[in-house]
Design a protein around this nucleic acid. Structure first.
Ligand code: MN
Ligand code: MN
Ligand code: ZN
Ligand code: ZN
Lengths: 136, 136
DNA sequence: CCTTAGATTAGACTCAGTCCAAGGTGAGAT
DNA sequence: ATCTCACCTTGGACTGAGTCTAATCTAAGG
């Protein structure tokens, strides 16, 4: 898997310091940051990055398929760089931590499809993580 | 299944016209309205209902388990009165229409649980409905 | 009827996310 | 190496869903 930054350059993106630091934050499995978390990470390296640029960059990466956008129950969106490896999620409902999990996609029987054309399926396991369980 | 209104009264809720009209809107399968849709329905019967009361009532019904809250990708929450019958969802990504579907819950193998205590699982089929498919 | 705990209300407020117009800059062309 | 401009970044105004509050109202038990 080529690094995200190389793939972006190959698509003709101008490689600015802002985009570089955002792309570097968005790497790995089990990475599911909110826009504000990405902004904080980016500012540790490049303190003057603006919120608008983080939103611009994340949205563009989502629209070209280099990031997945996950809508969390708390309303804020999360961004997931793990697009190469189809997966689902395990979510701690207390602290919001989210892990990638691999499980077979469920399928709908014909009569349950109601004539819809299925595009994909999302599975989220709601759970309590070991840290939150022991804190309770 | 006793009607929602009776269950609410039995819990000691004061039965006001506002609550009655909101509870009447929240009945049936395949019902997944936003707060604003509930408000519009309520105002057709009782024009002076306030937005605050709709939000108060929906949130209270969710917290006592008489409604499910579904966070849609567009950010707005949907409210689902079908709590008696465990089910999952089939969502048209174009028009947002959402149907109840019945499919076996997927399960995580022990090594995929990462030590989490699983509370439940949500499955959403992303799809295009027949109306949106023919419009395209 | 009275009474009052609980319900309703308008509008101010919060917070994530979008939009805009002005100024800045990466990188291809010379 | 410098020029150029299409593209990028920025602060701040704006939007829209949802929450909060303080004043007013009312369902229902005695
Ligand atoms: Mn993931
Ligand atoms: Mn449903
Ligand atoms: Zn946790
Ligand atoms: Zn549709």
């Amino acid at each position: 898997m080529t690094p995200l930054i190389d793939r972006l350059r190959r698509r003709g993106w101008r490689m600015t310091p802002q985009r570089r630091v955002i792309a570097e934050a968005m790497t790995g499995e089990h990475v599911h940051m909110t826009a504000d978390e990405v902004l904080r990470h980016a500012r540790e390296v490049l303190p003057e990055v603006s919120r608008a640029t983080v939103y611009n960059t994340l949205n563009e990466m989502v629209s070209i398929g280099e990031l997945l956008e996950i809508t969390h129950a708390d309303g804020r969106k999360r961004y997931d760089p793990n697009v190469a490896d189809h997966h689902h999620h395990l979510l701690c409902v207390e602290c919001g931590r989210m892990l990638d999990v691999h499980v077979d996609d469920p399928a709908l029987t014909a009569d349950q499809q109601h004539g819809f054309h299925i595009l994909g399926v999302e599975v989220t396991f709601r759970a309590r993580c070991p840290e939150c369980a022991s804190a309770a």
